[in-house]
Simulated assay, not measured.
Amino acid sequence: MPDVDDPELLREVSVDFYLDGLSKVEIAKERGLSRFQVARMLNSARELGIVRIEISTPAHLDASSGRTLAQALGVREVVISSGTSSNPSRATLARHVARALVDRARPQMTIGVSWSRTIELAAKHIENLPPCEVVQLVGAQPVEGSGNSLEMIQQFKALPGVRTFPIWAPLVVQDAATAAGLRAQPQIARALERAEHLDIAVVAVGGWSTESSTVYSNVSPDDIAEAVAAGAVGECAGHLIDAEGRLVPTALETRIVGVGLDQLRRTPEVIVCAHGASAAPAVRAAVRGGIGSTVVLDPAAAGALTDLLRAESAGTPVD
């Protein structure tokens, strides 16, 4: 039987748990121990100094960085998730988005939720909301490796006391007539009407590029070229925006099934999330255009946005 007091075994078990990510059950099975013995050994390793745990606040998580960025942007709050600028974690960003929504939700509110890869993950971290309405803000946007907004709204529907208003349609359709017809469908029209009464909205903002916008990857080269020529720097809820946050009028705009930017601007609290450095100009644009009171960023987006705002403040030309 293994000697549970052997310092070398304590070190090995600690490496298994803290560095290799094995569970206590897995360690116990591999080493012929009980789960309770493993737990006691991990405690002993800490008491003996074999394991030393240090908790600190990295620069990108420093609350003062968020406050400084919020002041520069002119928003109520900026939350910066964990990770590094070279290895940002969408999953961690999603947890911060979920927490931001849960912290602000109150009974009887009407909450609007757009779709993005980050917001889809955030929905999975929301286990409870007060009794409220959740409105789907845009149609479904299929993306390889992710679900879609229809699956996401079903997760909210499963929460006790939550009433949902889905949009059973794609986000982008082939022509303006189809989009108009879908928006006129009773159930979709009802969801869009409820969006006129939002207390909170959660939306993602992405740069107009293949790595930052799911819409970009689902439209034609002609749509992309027209958007660039018209000055698009980003996308929010399917709508293209320019550097000042104004709607960019293109043929794509007529084919969107979802809320309008004006509805988001009228919403008292809008949580904007963004992932990746390429989203920084779009975040700045959205806030300039009146969309966003709380901004949740990963370190890459926060770093790029900080550099962008510093350059502007110094009078340095930016792209």
Rank of each mutant, 00 (worst) to 15 (best):
M1Y: 05
D5I: 00
R11C: 08
S14Q: 02
Y18K: 04
S23D: 10
V25T: 14
K29I: 08
G32H: 09
R35C: 02
F36P: 00
A39M: 05
R40M: 07
M41W: 06
M41D: 05
G49F: 02
R52F: 05
I53N: 07
E54Q: 07
L61M: 13
L61Q: 12
A63C: 02
A63T: 06
I80T: 01
S81A: 15
S82C: 08
G83T: 08
T84M: 08
L93F: 07
R95E: 14
D103L: 14
R104Y: 12
V113N: 03
V113C: 13
L121S: 00
A123K: 00
A123D: 04
I126P: 01
L129D: 14
L129Q: 14
P130T: 04
P130H: 05
V134K: 02
V135C: 08
Q136D: 05
P142A: 11
E144R: 11
G145I: 10
S146G: 06
S149I: 05
I153W: 03
Q155G: 12
F156D: 03
K157V: 00
V162C: 07
P166I: 03
A180S: 15
A180Q: 15
L182F: 11
H197D: 07
L198Q: 04
I200Y: 07
G207Y: 00
T210G: 13
V219F: 11
D222H: 10
I224M: 10
E226M: 10
A227K: 08
G234M: 07
L247Q: 12
L252Y: 08
T254G: 10
I256Y: 04
V257E: 05
G258Y: 01
L261M: 14
C273I: 07
H275F: 15
R284D: 15
R284C: 10
A285S: 14
A286Y: 00
V287A: 06
G289L: 06
T294S: 12
V295Q: 01
D298K: 01
A301S: 13
A301H: 03
A302D: 03
R310K: 08
